[in-house]
Amino acid sequence: MLEIKDLHAKIDDKEILRGINLTVKPGEVHAIMGPNGSGKSTLSSVLAGSEAFEVSEGSASFYGKNLLDMPAEDRAREGLFYSFQYPVEIPGVSMVNFMRTAVNEQRKYNNEKPYSASEFLKLMREKKKLVEIDSNLTNRSVNEGFSGGEKKKNEIFQMAMLQPKVSILDETDSGLDIDALRIVANGVNKLKNENNATIVITHYQRLLDYIVPDYVHVLYKGRIVMSAGKELAYELEEKGYDWIKKQFED
């Protein structure tokens, strides 16, 4: 479903991604790990359509369509979801209005009838329950005054609402206490099925105890330098990244 080939990306002439290759199939969970500054967040922003980066080489196709040609909103409507490491606070835009606009624009794109107000509210109730998001969070402005944990739960709630095919979770575990982490991970697991896939970007193996990956990739200096099964995560947790750095020092 998602095929990334030799992807290079730069910001202000500084090359951050230097040839990423990654293939994701339905039903799979991929973990991307790596030390700080290795390009993990850049990779996810580039895939989500951030205009801050320039793709200089390579391709990324999503169900056969050229992902890199699409504006961010079309990527989302095609079924790509990006959970932000730092969700943005938007005072004045209510969660309900935000989500209804998002869901209905996606439906319109896919030639489906927009939800009526009551259908939408029903959907929202269901999904809130599924991801255990506090019901009054949705009565507020988008992320405004949310705690770190609430913001991350809100990302997973949005993921539930939009029902993406591929979700990229960018450091979803950062700054979460263990209870919030469990709720967030449970949400992700409940949304998982044989037709969708998840890419989990993380520093630590702990999240992977809850969201169990099929593959673990190590990103270092803009390249995937190692791929293996979930056991690699434990090895990294135990040994740190130094041995990788040594091995792949340019």
Partner: peptide, 14 residues
């Protein structure tokens, strides 16, 4: 904020 909204499928204009 623009990118956040667009990444949820909301058009640039909207």
């Amino acid at each position: 904020a623009m990118f956040y909204l667009r990444s949820r499928g909301i058009s640039k204009e909207e």
